[in-house]
Amino acid sequence: MSPVLETERLILRVPTQADFDAGWAAFHGDPECMRHLGGAMPRSIAWRALAQVVGMWPLRGFGTFSLIEKATGRWVGRSGPWQPEGWPAREVGWMLHRSAWGQGYATEAAEASLRFVFDTLGWTSVAHMIHPENLGSQAVAARIGSRFLEMVDLPPPMDVAGPTQMWGQTAEDWRANRPAPRAPT
């Protein structure tokens, strides 16, 4: 399964090796981008993170997407379903390159990812693991209709920062909060 999702400004597709030098390595090596995600990674560890994301697709049937800006073809981040071994719940997450912050891409990608997990994968609920100091991601979660649920512990090695916030919502709540489709004119 290699789905491709499109939004007004983004293409969401399964990550490829080409994404590594197109932005993946720079993102994962940027201390500010990785401030709430375990810290900057050397290239060798960033490559392993890419391999983990790509490997999740055949193992679980889903994984995070690379976010490609339609207007430029530029890799701007990643978003989508995520559930490595030991994770507290099925998650939809988002991680944007610093150059893409403040443009609404995280919300746009998260909405497309939620539609995918609820309508295609058939999930009945979704969570978002958010560092307690990551106010930007908390705002995105609220914009897409999620709410704070509880504090959780992540499995090693992601547990180093201590308990994290779990936000989330059900598919039923998500559908109830979407605008009704427009009738053809």
Rank of each mutant, 00 (worst) to 15 (best):
residue 107 T to I: 14
residue 126 V to F: 00
residue 37 L to N: 10
residue 36 H to M: 11
residue 116 F to E: 09
residue 83 Q to K: 10
residue 150 E to Q: 12
residue 138 Q to W: 03
residue 100 A to N: 14
residue 145 G to Q: 01
residue 149 L to Y: 06
residue 143 R to D: 10
residue 67 L to G: 13
residue 60 R to L: 12
residue 64 T to E: 04
residue 137 S to F: 04
residue 71 A to D: 13
residue 43 R to I: 11
residue 52 Q to A: 12
residue 87 W to D: 08
residue 84 P to M: 02
residue 51 A to Q: 06
residue 138 Q to I: 11
residue 142 A to M: 14
residue 127 A to K: 00
residue 78 R to F: 06
residue 63 G to E: 01
residue 108 E to N: 12
residue 139 A to T: 07
residue 101 W to C: 10
residue 120 T to R: 05
residue 82 W to V: 04
residue 52 Q to V: 13
residue 59 L to T: 08
residue 30 D to L: 00
residue 43 R to K: 13
residue 52 Q to R: 05
residue 40 A to W: 06
residue 35 R to T: 15
residue 46 A to C: 07
residue 59 L to E: 08
residue 145 G to P: 00
residue 96 L to E: 04
residue 129 M to Y: 09
residue 75 W to Q: 13
residue 147 R to L: 03
residue 37 L to F: 11
residue 141 A to G: 11
residue 67 L to S: 14
residue 110 A to P: 12
residue 65 F to I: 09
residue 48 R to P: 02
residue 87 W to N: 05
residue 75 W to Y: 07
residue 102 G to A: 13
residue 38 G to W: 12
residue 136 G to A: 13
residue 43 R to H: 09
residue 51 A to T: 07
residue 121 L to S: 02
residue 77 G to C: 15
residue 129 M to A: 15
residue 145 G to L: 06
residue 147 R to G: 03
residue 87 W to Y: 04
residue 99 S to M: 05
residue 79 S to G: 01
residue 44 S to W: 11
residue 55 G to S: 05
residue 92 V to F: 09
residue 138 Q to L: 12
residue 77 G to M: 13
residue 94 W to G: 01
residue 153 D to M: 08
residue 36 H to K: 12
residue 126 V to G: 00
residue 89 A to M: 06
residue 70 K to E: 12
residue 88 P to C: 02
residue 118 F to K: 08
residue 96 L to V: 15
residue 40 A to L: 14
residue 28 H to D: 01
residue 55 G to K: 15
residue 113 S to E: 03
residue 119 D to C: 04
residue 117 V to A: 00
residue 39 G to N: 02
residue 108 E to V: 10
residue 63 G to D: 08
residue 144 I to Q: 02
residue 55 G to A: 08
residue 75 W to H: 09
residue 131 H to M: 10
residue 38 G to R: 14
residue 146 S to P: 03
residue 74 R to W: 13
residue 70 K to L: 07
residue 125 S to W: 02
residue 155 P to R: 11
residue 46 A to H: 01
residue 136 G to Y: 09
residue 83 Q to F: 06
residue 148 F to H: 10
residue 127 A to S: 05
residue 114 L to Q: 02
residue 128 H to M: 14
residue 39 G to K: 10
residue 110 A to S: 10
residue 78 R to N: 15
residue 139 A to M: 07
residue 120 T to M: 00
residue 117 V to H: 01
residue 33 C to G: 01
residue 40 A to P: 14
residue 70 K to F: 06
residue 66 S to K: 14
